[in-house]
């Protein structure tokens, strides 16, 4: 299946919600510590098999002046996407336009690195940014300034995830070891879950059960929560050897989730099963920082890591298979 070489360590990868052959990726020089970022759009149909001929260049490539930690496609416009930059800005790109006309919007409000983005899949006209300045911001692509700022976290906010069901509800993951659930109509978080004993790096909602949330932490575990009974986790998924960098629920199978870790592996889980671990992929040779599951093609997975590789493969197969 397709594999691409990124120009720098990969940080995020996202399937287009409009085109099944399109993949958005964010990469950053020097592991994001310093240097440039790269936003790439890849055409999967043009990709080379690993070991075969070199992959063709990306459809769209845009270098940025600071590292990019995350990216997200617009849910409303097929060529629009957002990138989260280390300089605290969020940049909107129209990949149908030449690089000279990009970025189409520069949203410069966060005081620190922006580490997470999530586009609202229900409303489609709003997205969130999560920043190391301890805040989240709500944006609309047609506005030059943020719509709202969400304060409450006491340390870096690493990730945000909109509920797949409720258009106004989202959750955030922070280094203050909590996950918080917010309703954008409310000034303060609706729920604060002291989710882990270490920093919480990522979280996602189950797409089929709007009260189920999974969190991934530096403590190497993934915990699954029912926000109606948040006192104790529904499930704890152990298996990663290092911090869990991202978790993502399947858009097609209830209870199924994907995770990646600093242990250089990607794992597939079903939290409702006793043997929750479904698959483990060790195809990356460095930390895995970005994963995604295609909404348009069931079972199609993507991952990127600090080995500067981007892999796309169907669940059940070997990412490195010819």
């Amino acid at each position: 299946m397709p594999a691409f070489k990124a120009p720098a360590p990969g940080f995020s990868v996202r399937f287009s919600p409009f085109h099944e052959q399109r993949l958005l990726a964010a990469a950053s020089q020097h592991f994001g510590l310093v240097g440039n970022g790269h936003l790439l759009v890849l055409d999967l149909s043009a990709a080379a098999a690993p070991g075969g001929a070199p992959a063709p260049p990306p459809v769209f490539a845009f270098p940025t002046s600071d590292a990019l930690f995350d990216c997200a496609w617009s849910e409303s416009h097929e060529s629009l996407c957002a990138a989260a930059s280390g300089d605290g800005s969020v940049r909107l790109f129209d990949v149908a336009l030449p690089p000279a006309q990009n970025p189409v919007r520069l949203l410069r409000e966060h005081a620190r690195e922006v580490h997470g983005l999530d586009w609202n899949p229900v409303r489609r006209d709003a997205f969130l940014s999560a920043s190391w300045d301890d805040t989240l911001k709500l944006w609309s692509p047609d506005r030059p300034a943020s719509v709202r700022t969400f304060r409450g976290h006491e340390y870096c906010v690493y990730a945000a995830a909109w509920s797949a069901r409720h258009p106004d509800v989202f959750a955030s993951a922070s280094g203050d070891r909590t996950a918080r659930v917010w309703d954008v109509r409310e000034p303060a978080p609706t729920l604060v879950i002291p989710a882990h004993d270490h920093e919480v790096l990522s979280l996602d909602w189950d797409k089929y059960d709007p009260s189920i949330l999974a969190t991934g932490s530096v403590d190497k575990s993934i915990r699954v929560w029912d926000v109606r009974a948040p006192r104790a986790p529904l499930a704890q998924l152990a298996g990663h050897g290092y911090a869990v960098k991202r978790v993502k629920f399947s858009p097609h199978r209830q209870g199924m989730l994907m995770s990646c870790s600093y242990d250089m592996t990607v794992c597939m889980w079903d939290y409702r099963k006793e043997d929750a671990l479904l698959a483990r992929y060790g195809h990356h040779t460095e930390f895995v920082a970005g994963i995604d599951m295609s909404v348009l093609v069931e079972g199609l997975l993507a991952s990127t890591g600090w080995d500067e590789m981007i892999y796309v493969w169907p669940f059940g197969s070997d990412p490195r298979a010819m």
Partner: peptide, 10 residues
């Protein structure tokens, strides 16, 4: 045609 509505909180 996309489902349009206001951004809550705005």
């Amino acid at each position: 045609a996309a489902p349009l509505s206001t951004i809550p909180g705005s």
